[in-house]
Design a protein around this nucleic acid. Structure first.
Length: 476
DNA sequence: CCTGGAGTTGTCCTA
DNA sequence: TTAGGACAACTCCAG
Protein backbone atom coordinates (compact mmCIF):
# COMPACT_ATOMS: atom_id res chain seq x y z
CA UNK A 1 0.00 0.00 0.00
CA UNK A 2 2.50 2.61 1.14
CA UNK A 3 4.91 1.99 -1.69
CA UNK A 4 8.17 3.90 -1.87
CA UNK A 5 8.42 6.76 -4.36
CA UNK A 6 10.60 9.72 -5.28
CA UNK A 7 9.49 13.29 -5.68
CA UNK A 8 10.19 15.64 -8.55
CA UNK A 9 9.48 19.16 -7.41
CA UNK A 10 8.38 21.34 -10.36
CA UNK A 11 9.39 24.97 -10.04
CA UNK A 12 10.34 27.02 -13.10
CA UNK A 13 10.89 23.95 -15.24
CA UNK A 14 7.33 23.29 -16.34
CA UNK A 15 8.20 20.76 -19.02
CA UNK A 16 8.61 17.03 -19.42
CA UNK A 17 11.19 17.11 -22.21
CA UNK A 18 14.82 17.93 -21.53
CA UNK A 19 14.21 17.98 -17.80
CA UNK A 20 17.39 16.80 -16.01
CA UNK A 21 15.73 16.07 -12.69
CA UNK A 22 12.96 13.98 -14.27
CA UNK A 23 15.46 12.24 -16.52
CA UNK A 24 17.59 11.32 -13.55
CA UNK A 25 14.71 9.80 -11.63
CA UNK A 26 13.41 8.02 -14.69
CA UNK A 27 16.81 6.57 -15.58
CA UNK A 28 17.11 5.25 -12.03
CA UNK A 29 13.74 3.57 -12.35
CA UNK A 30 12.26 5.45 -9.43
CA UNK A 31 8.51 5.74 -8.91
CA UNK A 32 8.05 9.38 -9.80
CA UNK A 33 5.56 11.65 -8.06
CA UNK A 34 5.41 15.27 -9.23
CA UNK A 35 4.58 18.18 -7.00
CA UNK A 36 4.32 21.94 -7.36
CA UNK A 37 4.48 24.31 -4.40
CA UNK A 38 3.18 27.83 -4.55
CA UNK A 39 5.31 29.65 -2.01
CA UNK A 40 4.13 33.14 -1.11
CA UNK A 41 5.86 32.99 2.24
CA UNK A 42 9.57 32.99 1.54
CA UNK A 43 9.66 35.24 -1.54
CA UNK A 44 10.69 38.88 -1.44
CA UNK A 45 8.25 39.80 -4.20
CA UNK A 46 4.91 38.20 -5.06
CA UNK A 47 4.32 37.06 -8.62
CA UNK A 48 3.01 39.78 -10.93
CA UNK A 49 -0.52 39.63 -12.31
CA UNK A 50 0.53 38.38 -15.74
CA UNK A 51 2.85 35.82 -14.20
CA UNK A 52 -0.01 34.46 -12.11
CA UNK A 53 -2.20 34.05 -15.16
CA UNK A 54 0.59 32.28 -17.00
CA UNK A 55 1.28 30.01 -14.07
CA UNK A 56 -2.38 29.12 -13.62
CA UNK A 57 -2.74 28.09 -17.26
CA UNK A 58 0.63 26.31 -17.23
CA UNK A 59 -0.21 24.22 -14.20
CA UNK A 60 -3.47 23.11 -15.73
CA UNK A 61 -1.63 22.17 -18.90
CA UNK A 62 1.10 20.34 -17.02
CA UNK A 63 -1.44 18.47 -14.93
CA UNK A 64 -3.09 17.23 -18.10
CA UNK A 65 0.27 16.09 -19.44
CA UNK A 66 0.66 14.11 -16.23
CA UNK A 67 -2.79 12.50 -16.44
CA UNK A 68 -3.94 14.59 -13.49
CA UNK A 69 -1.22 13.24 -11.27
CA UNK A 70 0.34 16.61 -10.44
CA UNK A 71 0.09 17.47 -6.76
CA UNK A 72 -0.41 21.13 -5.94
CA UNK A 73 0.52 22.66 -2.62
CA UNK A 74 0.56 26.14 -1.18
CA UNK A 75 2.75 27.36 1.63
CA UNK A 76 6.18 26.85 3.11
CA UNK A 77 7.99 23.97 1.35
CA UNK A 78 9.64 22.85 4.61
CA UNK A 79 6.27 22.22 6.25
CA UNK A 80 4.85 20.58 3.17
CA UNK A 81 7.74 18.15 2.88
CA UNK A 82 7.58 17.35 6.60
CA UNK A 83 3.91 16.52 6.20
CA UNK A 84 4.58 14.29 3.20
CA UNK A 85 7.43 12.49 4.97
CA UNK A 86 5.19 11.81 7.93
CA UNK A 87 2.63 10.04 5.81
CA UNK A 88 4.50 8.45 2.95
CA UNK A 89 7.57 6.47 2.16
CA UNK A 90 9.76 8.91 0.23
CA UNK A 91 13.07 7.79 -1.22
CA UNK A 92 14.43 10.88 -2.94
CA UNK A 93 13.55 14.51 -3.56
CA UNK A 94 14.86 16.11 -6.74
CA UNK A 95 14.50 19.49 -8.37
CA UNK A 96 16.00 21.80 -10.92
CA UNK A 97 17.72 24.82 -9.44
CA UNK A 98 16.36 28.38 -9.37
CA UNK A 99 18.64 31.35 -8.88
CA UNK A 100 16.63 34.19 -7.39
CA UNK A 101 18.38 35.30 -4.19
CA UNK A 102 15.39 34.45 -1.99
CA UNK A 103 15.15 31.01 -3.55
CA UNK A 104 18.85 30.29 -3.12
CA UNK A 105 18.52 31.21 0.54
CA UNK A 106 15.38 29.14 1.04
CA UNK A 107 16.61 26.10 -0.88
CA UNK A 108 20.01 26.02 0.80
CA UNK A 109 18.38 25.66 4.20
CA UNK A 110 15.67 23.35 2.95
CA UNK A 111 18.12 21.04 1.24
CA UNK A 112 20.23 20.55 4.32
CA UNK A 113 17.11 19.81 6.37
CA UNK A 114 15.66 17.38 3.86
CA UNK A 115 18.96 15.58 3.57
CA UNK A 116 18.61 14.43 7.16
CA UNK A 117 15.68 12.27 6.06
CA UNK A 118 15.96 11.52 2.36
CA UNK A 119 18.27 11.63 -0.59
CA UNK A 120 18.22 15.06 -2.27
CA UNK A 121 19.55 15.88 -5.72
CA UNK A 122 19.40 19.14 -7.63
CA UNK A 123 20.11 19.93 -11.28
CA UNK A 124 20.63 22.74 -13.73
CA UNK A 125 17.74 22.84 -16.17
CA UNK A 126 17.53 26.49 -17.06
CA UNK A 127 20.98 27.98 -17.62
CA UNK A 128 23.58 27.17 -20.24
CA UNK A 129 26.29 27.73 -17.65
CA UNK A 130 26.02 27.93 -13.88
CA UNK A 131 26.50 31.50 -12.65
CA UNK A 132 29.38 30.46 -10.41
CA UNK A 133 31.18 28.78 -13.30
CA UNK A 134 31.67 31.91 -15.39
CA UNK A 135 34.13 34.26 -13.71
CA UNK A 136 37.25 36.14 -14.66
CA UNK A 137 40.59 34.42 -14.12
CA UNK A 138 40.89 35.98 -10.68
CA UNK A 139 37.54 34.50 -9.68
CA UNK A 140 35.65 37.79 -9.62
CA UNK A 141 32.47 38.28 -11.69
CA UNK A 142 32.38 39.88 -15.12
CA UNK A 143 30.70 43.25 -15.31
CA UNK A 144 30.81 43.78 -19.06
CA UNK A 145 28.73 41.67 -21.38
CA UNK A 146 31.13 41.17 -24.29
CA UNK A 147 34.06 39.70 -22.36
CA UNK A 148 31.59 37.75 -20.21
CA UNK A 149 30.06 36.15 -23.25
CA UNK A 150 33.01 35.84 -25.64
CA UNK A 151 35.72 34.87 -23.27
CA UNK A 152 33.74 33.67 -20.28
CA UNK A 153 31.00 31.63 -21.92
CA UNK A 154 32.14 30.74 -25.43
CA UNK A 155 35.56 29.62 -24.24
CA UNK A 156 34.08 27.53 -21.47
CA UNK A 157 32.72 24.03 -21.96
CA UNK A 158 29.79 23.53 -24.33
CA UNK A 159 26.32 23.78 -22.84
CA UNK A 160 24.61 20.56 -21.84
CA UNK A 161 22.92 18.86 -24.78
CA UNK A 162 19.14 18.59 -24.50
CA UNK A 163 17.93 15.13 -23.66
CA UNK A 164 14.43 13.74 -23.65
CA UNK A 165 13.11 10.37 -22.70
CA UNK A 166 9.79 8.72 -22.11
CA UNK A 167 8.87 9.34 -18.50
CA UNK A 168 6.25 7.34 -16.66
CA UNK A 169 4.61 8.63 -13.55
CA UNK A 170 3.63 6.74 -10.44
CA UNK A 171 -0.03 6.07 -9.71
CA UNK A 172 -0.04 7.66 -6.31
CA UNK A 173 -2.96 7.98 -3.93
CA UNK A 174 -1.99 11.34 -2.49
CA UNK A 175 -4.39 14.23 -2.29
CA UNK A 176 -3.70 17.90 -2.86
CA UNK A 177 -5.50 21.14 -3.60
CA UNK A 178 -6.49 22.13 -7.15
CA UNK A 179 -4.89 24.73 -9.35
CA UNK A 180 -7.85 27.04 -8.89
CA UNK A 181 -7.35 26.92 -5.12
CA UNK A 182 -4.14 28.87 -5.60
CA UNK A 183 -6.34 31.85 -6.57
CA UNK A 184 -3.96 32.92 -9.28
CA UNK A 185 -6.86 34.04 -11.45
CA UNK A 186 -9.22 36.83 -10.57
CA UNK A 187 -11.55 36.17 -13.49
CA UNK A 188 -11.29 39.66 -14.88
CA UNK A 189 -11.48 40.50 -18.57
CA UNK A 190 -7.85 41.61 -18.69
CA UNK A 191 -6.80 38.04 -17.91
CA UNK A 192 -9.09 36.63 -20.58
CA UNK A 193 -7.54 38.97 -23.11
CA UNK A 194 -4.08 37.74 -22.21
CA UNK A 195 -5.03 34.10 -22.48
CA UNK A 196 -6.46 34.59 -25.94
CA UNK A 197 -3.14 36.01 -27.13
CA UNK A 198 -1.09 33.02 -26.08
CA UNK A 199 -1.13 29.26 -26.31
CA UNK A 200 0.32 28.32 -22.97
CA UNK A 201 2.08 25.01 -22.46
CA UNK A 202 5.11 22.96 -23.37
CA UNK A 203 4.03 21.68 -26.79
CA UNK A 204 3.04 25.18 -27.88
CA UNK A 205 6.48 26.43 -26.92
CA UNK A 206 7.99 23.69 -29.04
CA UNK A 207 5.85 24.62 -32.04
CA UNK A 208 6.69 28.31 -31.71
CA UNK A 209 10.36 27.43 -31.54
CA UNK A 210 10.10 25.31 -34.69
CA UNK A 211 8.33 28.02 -36.65
CA UNK A 212 10.78 30.67 -35.43
CA UNK A 213 13.74 28.63 -36.62
CA UNK A 214 12.16 28.12 -40.01
CA UNK A 215 11.12 31.75 -40.49
CA UNK A 216 12.05 34.59 -38.13
CA UNK A 217 15.66 33.54 -37.65
CA UNK A 218 16.44 34.09 -41.34
CA UNK A 219 16.57 37.86 -40.94
CA UNK A 220 16.92 37.93 -37.17
CA UNK A 221 19.84 40.31 -36.84
CA UNK A 222 18.07 43.10 -38.79
CA UNK A 223 14.43 42.24 -38.41
CA UNK A 224 14.47 41.88 -34.63
CA UNK A 225 14.65 45.68 -34.38
CA UNK A 226 11.32 46.21 -36.10
CA UNK A 227 8.31 45.67 -33.84
CA UNK A 228 5.99 45.13 -36.76
CA UNK A 229 8.10 42.35 -38.28
CA UNK A 230 7.93 38.73 -37.23
CA UNK A 231 11.59 38.15 -36.58
CA UNK A 232 11.67 37.80 -32.81
CA UNK A 233 10.88 34.45 -31.24
CA UNK A 234 8.44 35.63 -28.54
CA UNK A 235 9.58 32.63 -26.54
CA UNK A 236 10.56 34.64 -23.47
CA UNK A 237 7.55 33.66 -21.30
CA UNK A 238 8.05 29.99 -22.11
CA UNK A 239 11.74 30.30 -21.40
CA UNK A 240 11.05 31.98 -18.09
CA UNK A 241 8.68 29.23 -16.98
CA UNK A 242 10.86 26.49 -18.37
CA UNK A 243 8.37 25.29 -20.96
CA UNK A 244 11.32 25.35 -23.32
CA UNK A 245 14.95 25.24 -22.22
CA UNK A 246 17.80 27.54 -23.21
CA UNK A 247 19.66 24.37 -24.17
CA UNK A 248 16.96 23.34 -26.60
CA UNK A 249 17.11 26.78 -28.21
CA UNK A 250 20.90 26.84 -28.31
CA UNK A 251 21.18 23.54 -30.11
CA UNK A 252 18.19 24.17 -32.33
CA UNK A 253 19.99 27.32 -33.50
CA UNK A 254 22.98 25.16 -34.41
CA UNK A 255 20.81 23.06 -36.70
CA UNK A 256 19.63 25.75 -39.11
CA UNK A 257 22.89 26.05 -41.02
CA UNK A 258 23.42 26.59 -43.89
CA UNK A 259 19.96 28.04 -44.59
CA UNK A 260 20.58 30.78 -42.06
CA UNK A 261 23.62 33.06 -42.03
CA UNK A 262 26.19 32.72 -39.29
CA UNK A 263 25.43 36.27 -38.17
CA UNK A 264 21.77 35.56 -37.51
CA UNK A 265 22.64 32.44 -35.57
CA UNK A 266 25.31 34.19 -33.52
CA UNK A 267 23.12 37.13 -32.64
CA UNK A 268 20.30 34.87 -31.55
CA UNK A 269 22.67 32.86 -29.39
CA UNK A 270 24.12 36.03 -27.90
CA UNK A 271 20.59 36.96 -26.79
CA UNK A 272 20.59 33.72 -24.81
CA UNK A 273 24.00 34.93 -23.61
CA UNK A 274 22.40 38.09 -22.27
CA UNK A 275 20.03 35.98 -20.24
CA UNK A 276 23.05 34.14 -18.82
CA UNK A 277 24.70 37.48 -18.07
CA UNK A 278 21.64 38.71 -16.15
CA UNK A 279 21.56 35.54 -14.04
CA UNK A 280 25.28 35.86 -13.45
CA UNK A 281 24.83 39.45 -12.26
CA UNK A 282 21.93 38.46 -10.03
CA UNK A 283 24.00 35.71 -8.49
CA UNK A 284 26.91 37.99 -7.72
CA UNK A 285 24.84 41.09 -6.91
CA UNK A 286 21.78 39.72 -5.10
CA UNK A 287 20.39 43.19 -4.42
CA UNK A 288 20.08 43.89 -8.12
CA UNK A 289 16.31 44.32 -7.89
CA UNK A 290 16.42 47.06 -5.31
CA UNK A 291 19.81 48.74 -5.28
CA UNK A 292 21.64 50.70 -7.97
CA UNK A 293 24.68 48.72 -8.99
CA UNK A 294 26.52 52.03 -9.35
CA UNK A 295 26.30 53.51 -5.90
CA UNK A 296 26.72 57.09 -7.06
CA UNK A 297 23.09 56.94 -8.20
CA UNK A 298 21.96 56.97 -4.59
CA UNK A 299 22.12 60.75 -4.95
CA UNK A 300 20.32 61.01 -8.25
CA UNK A 301 17.55 63.66 -8.31
CA UNK A 302 14.66 61.49 -9.53
CA UNK A 303 11.32 63.22 -9.94
CA UNK A 304 8.12 62.09 -8.32
CA UNK A 305 5.05 62.68 -10.43
CA UNK A 306 2.10 60.33 -10.23
CA UNK A 307 0.39 61.94 -13.15
CA UNK A 308 3.36 61.30 -15.44
CA UNK A 309 3.67 57.77 -14.14
CA UNK A 310 0.02 57.02 -14.76
CA UNK A 311 0.20 58.48 -18.29
CA UNK A 312 3.20 56.27 -18.98
CA UNK A 313 1.55 53.13 -17.61
CA UNK A 314 -1.65 53.66 -19.57
CA UNK A 315 0.03 54.67 -22.82
CA UNK A 316 -1.17 58.26 -22.82
CA UNK A 317 2.07 60.20 -23.00
CA UNK A 318 1.25 61.80 -26.34
CA UNK A 319 4.21 60.12 -28.02
CA UNK A 320 2.67 57.47 -30.29
CA UNK A 321 5.54 54.98 -30.26
CA UNK A 322 5.80 55.10 -26.46
CA UNK A 323 2.05 54.72 -26.07
CA UNK A 324 1.94 51.87 -28.57
CA UNK A 325 4.58 49.99 -26.58
CA UNK A 326 2.86 50.54 -23.27
CA UNK A 327 -0.45 49.44 -24.70
CA UNK A 328 1.08 46.36 -26.30
CA UNK A 329 2.21 45.46 -22.81
CA UNK A 330 -1.24 45.99 -21.35
CA UNK A 331 -3.05 44.25 -24.20
CA UNK A 332 -0.79 41.25 -24.57
CA UNK A 333 1.41 40.79 -21.52
CA UNK A 334 4.41 41.25 -23.76
CA UNK A 335 6.42 44.09 -25.29
CA UNK A 336 8.82 43.98 -28.21
CA UNK A 337 12.41 44.52 -27.13
CA UNK A 338 12.86 47.71 -29.16
CA UNK A 339 9.85 49.13 -27.33
CA UNK A 340 11.17 48.08 -23.96
CA UNK A 341 14.16 50.32 -24.64
CA UNK A 342 12.12 53.20 -25.99
CA UNK A 343 9.52 53.20 -23.22
CA UNK A 344 12.18 52.56 -20.58
CA UNK A 345 14.33 55.42 -21.77
CA UNK A 346 11.28 57.69 -21.86
CA UNK A 347 10.33 56.90 -18.26
CA UNK A 348 13.80 57.28 -16.86
CA UNK A 349 15.32 60.01 -19.03
CA UNK A 350 12.41 62.11 -20.25
CA UNK A 351 10.09 61.80 -17.26
CA UNK A 352 13.02 61.45 -14.84
CA UNK A 353 11.09 58.88 -12.81
CA UNK A 354 12.98 56.23 -10.83
CA UNK A 355 13.58 52.99 -12.72
CA UNK A 356 11.90 51.13 -9.84
CA UNK A 357 8.58 52.46 -11.16
CA UNK A 358 9.19 50.85 -14.51
CA UNK A 359 10.59 47.67 -13.04
CA UNK A 360 7.47 47.22 -10.90
CA UNK A 361 5.03 47.87 -13.73
CA UNK A 362 6.81 45.50 -16.09
CA UNK A 363 6.98 42.90 -13.35
CA UNK A 364 3.22 43.10 -12.97
CA UNK A 365 2.32 43.15 -16.67
CA UNK A 366 4.84 40.92 -18.43
CA UNK A 367 4.13 37.24 -18.91
CA UNK A 368 7.90 36.80 -19.16
CA UNK A 369 8.57 38.84 -16.00
CA UNK A 370 11.87 37.50 -14.78
CA UNK A 371 13.62 38.60 -11.61
CA UNK A 372 17.07 38.73 -13.19
CA UNK A 373 16.30 40.00 -16.67
CA UNK A 374 13.80 42.61 -15.54
CA UNK A 375 16.00 44.11 -12.84
CA UNK A 376 19.20 44.04 -14.84
CA UNK A 377 17.59 45.47 -17.96
CA UNK A 378 16.02 48.35 -16.07
CA UNK A 379 19.39 49.13 -14.55
CA UNK A 380 20.87 49.07 -18.02
CA UNK A 381 18.26 51.49 -19.38
CA UNK A 382 18.61 53.78 -16.38
CA UNK A 383 22.39 53.77 -16.63
CA UNK A 384 22.74 52.51 -13.07
CA UNK A 385 23.94 49.03 -14.02
CA UNK A 386 27.43 47.57 -14.34
CA UNK A 387 27.42 47.60 -18.13
CA UNK A 388 25.31 50.68 -18.65
CA UNK A 389 24.64 52.78 -21.70
CA UNK A 390 26.37 56.20 -21.62
CA UNK A 391 24.11 58.75 -19.98
CA UNK A 392 23.84 60.86 -23.13
CA UNK A 393 22.24 57.97 -24.98
CA UNK A 394 18.66 59.12 -24.66
CA UNK A 395 16.22 57.57 -27.09
CA UNK A 396 14.25 60.09 -29.10
CA UNK A 397 10.76 58.59 -29.47
CA UNK A 398 10.13 60.39 -32.74
CA UNK A 399 13.41 59.39 -34.38
CA UNK A 400 13.05 55.83 -33.11
CA UNK A 401 9.51 55.55 -34.45
CA UNK A 402 10.46 56.84 -37.89
CA UNK A 403 13.40 54.48 -38.03
CA UNK A 404 11.87 51.28 -36.66
CA UNK A 405 8.19 51.67 -37.49
CA UNK A 406 8.47 53.64 -40.73
CA UNK A 407 4.97 52.85 -41.92
CA UNK A 408 3.40 53.50 -38.53
CA UNK A 409 1.66 50.13 -38.66
CA UNK A 410 2.82 49.09 -35.22
CA UNK A 411 1.61 52.39 -33.77
CA UNK A 412 -1.77 52.07 -35.45
CA UNK A 413 -2.16 48.51 -34.23
CA UNK A 414 -2.02 49.54 -30.60
CA UNK A 415 -3.14 53.17 -30.71
CA UNK A 416 -6.29 52.88 -32.80
CA UNK A 417 -7.33 56.50 -32.29
CA UNK A 418 -4.47 57.37 -34.65
CA UNK A 419 -5.40 54.89 -37.37
CA UNK A 420 -6.63 57.51 -39.86
CA UNK A 421 -3.74 59.92 -39.42
CA UNK A 422 -1.54 60.08 -42.53
CA UNK A 423 1.80 58.35 -42.02
CA UNK A 424 3.50 61.71 -42.44
CA UNK A 425 2.01 62.89 -39.12
CA UNK A 426 1.64 59.61 -37.25
CA UNK A 427 4.89 60.08 -35.32
CA UNK A 428 3.99 63.61 -34.24
CA UNK A 429 0.21 63.91 -34.39
CA UNK A 430 0.25 67.36 -32.77
CA UNK A 431 1.80 68.63 -36.02
CA UNK A 432 -1.11 67.40 -38.11
CA UNK A 433 -2.60 70.45 -39.87
CA UNK A 434 -6.15 71.42 -38.94
CA UNK A 435 -7.62 70.76 -42.37
CA UNK A 436 -6.18 67.25 -42.40
CA UNK A 437 -7.32 66.39 -38.89
CA UNK A 438 -10.76 67.93 -39.56
CA UNK A 439 -11.18 65.81 -42.65
CA UNK A 440 -10.62 62.63 -40.67
CA UNK A 441 -12.53 63.82 -37.62
CA UNK A 442 -9.51 63.81 -35.32
CA UNK A 443 -9.00 66.29 -32.52
CA UNK A 444 -5.61 66.48 -30.86
CA UNK A 445 -5.97 67.01 -27.12
CA UNK A 446 -9.33 65.24 -27.18
CA UNK A 447 -9.00 62.03 -29.18
CA UNK A 448 -5.33 61.72 -28.33
CA UNK A 449 -3.26 63.69 -25.80
CA UNK A 450 -0.73 66.40 -26.47
CA UNK A 451 2.78 65.32 -25.43
CA UNK A 452 3.06 65.41 -21.63
CA UNK A 453 6.64 66.69 -21.79
CA UNK A 454 8.65 68.47 -24.44
CA UNK A 455 11.21 66.09 -25.84
CA UNK A 456 13.95 68.67 -26.22
CA UNK A 457 13.52 70.29 -22.81
CA UNK A 458 13.21 67.01 -20.95
CA UNK A 459 16.31 65.72 -22.71
CA UNK A 460 18.28 68.78 -21.62
CA UNK A 461 17.02 68.37 -18.08
CA UNK A 462 18.11 64.75 -18.00
CA UNK A 463 21.55 65.52 -19.43
CA UNK A 464 22.02 68.15 -16.72
CA UNK A 465 20.85 65.82 -13.99
CA UNK A 466 23.18 63.07 -15.13
CA UNK A 467 26.18 65.33 -15.54
CA UNK A 468 25.60 66.98 -12.15
CA UNK A 469 25.75 63.50 -10.70
CA UNK A 470 29.14 63.01 -12.27
CA UNK A 471 30.42 66.23 -10.69
CA UNK A 472 29.07 65.29 -7.28
CA UNK A 473 30.80 61.99 -7.55
CA UNK A 474 34.04 63.56 -8.64
CA UNK A 475 34.16 65.97 -5.70
CA UNK A 476 33.85 63.21 -3.16
C1' DC B 1 51.87 46.72 -12.02
C1' DC B 2 51.34 48.73 -16.37
C1' DT B 3 49.18 49.42 -20.83
C1' DG B 4 46.00 49.97 -24.20
C1' DG B 5 41.80 48.79 -26.33
C1' DA B 6 37.00 48.48 -25.67
C1' DG B 7 32.29 49.12 -23.99
C1' DT B 8 24.22 46.07 -27.44
C1' DT B 9 20.67 48.68 -29.14
C1' DG B 10 21.62 56.81 -29.81
C1' DT B 11 21.27 61.69 -31.01
C1' DC B 12 22.62 65.95 -32.67
C1' DC B 13 25.35 69.14 -35.00
C1' DT B 14 28.34 70.33 -38.51
C1' DA B 15 30.71 70.36 -42.65
C1' DT C 1 21.46 64.80 -48.26
C1' DT C 2 24.77 62.45 -45.65
C1' DA C 3 28.69 61.03 -43.17
C1' DG C 4 31.50 61.70 -39.25
C1' DG C 5 32.64 63.30 -34.90
C1' DA C 6 31.32 64.88 -30.25
C1' DC C 7 29.02 63.68 -26.34
C1' DA C 8 32.77 62.04 -20.50
C1' DA C 9 35.32 60.06 -18.55
C1' DC C 10 35.71 55.78 -16.39
C1' DT C 11 36.14 51.21 -15.55
C1' DC C 12 36.72 46.86 -17.17
C1' DC C 13 39.56 43.36 -18.91
C1' DA C 14 43.39 40.79 -20.77
C1' DG C 15 47.99 40.49 -22.10
Amino acid sequence: MNKEFSIHWFRQDLRINDNPSLNYLSTNGDNIVCIFIYDEINCDRQLGSAGKVWLHESLNYLNEQLDNKLLIFKGDPQKIFDEIFNNFNVKKVCWNRCYEPWRIKRDFKLKSNLKKKVNVKTFNASLLWEPWEITKNDGSPYKIFTPFYRRGCLNYKLPRKPESQKISFFNHTMKSINVKDLHLRKQISWEEKLIHKWKIGESHAYNIMKSFFSEGIKDYSEGRNFPNKKNVSRLSPYLHWGQISANQLWYEAEKVRPDVSEENIDIFKSELGWREFFYNLMYHFPEIQSKNLQTKFENFPWDENNNYLECWRRGKTGYPIVDAGMRELWETGYMHNRLRMITGSFLVKNLLLHWHNGEHWFWDCLCDADYASNSASWQWVAGTGTDAAPYFRIFNPITQAKKFDPTGEYIKRFVPELKNIPTKYIFEPWLCPIDVSDSIGFKIGIDYPYPIVDIKQSREKALNAFSSLKTVNYEK
